[in-house]
């Protein structure tokens, strides 16, 4: 059963276009939404949260479109943005009061437990909080109520490694019952490797690939070797050739490694390497290989 359905979504701005984004996220899974700065990650997530309106296409969360029932749609989403969105002159207690009045499922005891766990003083104004404390407050506010989908827009940026590990643990805990899902964008691709089940790679407003992490890791190998050994035929098969101090590195489809001779070293590719080489391929050749 799909929890998040994004069908043919487009958004047009004067200088940027998000084109025909299409994917589904089943219940109980985590999707990493990756791409370079300005690729359209935040735009897509803002469209899901309904901070922006689609020019074309439909988005359903738990089978509900925002246009059908905005209140139920939004109650199902927990959103944590790249910027802190609570008014900074509010105290934690103010925020708690507001959330209680808007969300019937908001659990004050659970919220209090998060505050205690993360040592967030409820009488303090949030303007006096550090970046890490603010992110934790946003997490506490969404985890203290019933949601179906967590939308995290580079939420782990600026967190120290300990806090980041804790947030990753929370995401895994969140989907443990198999009824909820997470979609998150990040530049820290090691986080993706740890927890994402699906990877969606977007570039220049267009989908490059969307697949399960395991299939991606299975499909690609990292090829290293001397540039002089690369024949024109092989160059056509390699994705995103990057020159290094010791030669080159590139991605190759595991099924098309027949052209690789013993001069080349083949290794398992990480998600980080897959994304970097695809981005390089696009930058150098101006082409995009769709999967």
């Amino acid at each position: 059963m799909e929890l998040l359905e994004v069908h043919g979504v487009s958004k047009r701005y004067k200088d940027f276009q998000l084109e025909n984004i299409d994917f589904v996220l089943p219940k109980g899974y985590i999707m990493g939404y990756v791409g370079q700065n300005g690729a359209g990650k935040s735009t897509t997530l803002n469209l899901i949260v309904n901070l922006c309106k689609c020019t074309e296409g439909e988005i359903y969360v738990d089978g509900i479109a925002c246009g059908e029932d905005e209140i139920r749609y939004k109650e199902r989403i927990g959103y944590i943005g790249d910027e802190f969105y609570y008014p900074t002159n509010f105290t934690v207690r103010n925020i708690q009061g507001i959330l209680k009045s808007f969300y019937p499922s908001f659990d004050e005891d659970r919220f209090g437990a998060f505050l205690e766990r993360w040592k967030l003083a409820d009488k303090m104004k949030v303007k006096d909080f550090s970046r890490g404390m603010r992110v934790k407050l946003m997490f506490a506010s969404v985890l203290a109520r019933e949601t179906k989908l967590l939308v995290l827009d580079e939420a782990t940026n600026g967190l120290d490694p300990v806090a980041r590990a804790e947030v990753i643990g929370l995401m895994q805990e969140y989907i443990a019952d198999g009824e909820r899902s997470v979609i998150f964008s990040t530049h820290i691709l090691s986080d993706l490797e740890q927890i994402a089940d699906y990877i969606f790679f977007i570039d220049d407003g267009k989908k490059v690939f969307c697949d399960t992490k395991d299939q991606l890791l299975e499909r690609y190998v990292l090829v290293k070797g001397e540039r002089r050994d690369v024949t024109p035929q092989l160059a056509g098969e390699l994705i995103g050739i990057i020159d290094t101090a010791y030669g080159f590195s590139a991605l190759a489809d595991r099924e098309r490694t027949g052209l690789l001779t013993k001069e080349f070293l083949c290794d398992k590719a990480t998600i980080d390497e897959i994304v970097v080489h695809y981005a390089q391929d696009k930058a150098k050749n101006g082409r995009r290989r769709m999967l």
Binding site: L51, E70, Y73, K74, E83, F84, Y85, N89, F102
Partner: peptide, 17 residues
């Protein structure tokens, strides 16, 4: 004036029409 655009996002994500 009190609502910076980022605060306005907070109002937008609350479940209401």
């Amino acid at each position: 004036g009190a609502c910076r655009s980022i605060d306005a996002r907070f109002l937008m994500i609350l479940p209401a029409d």
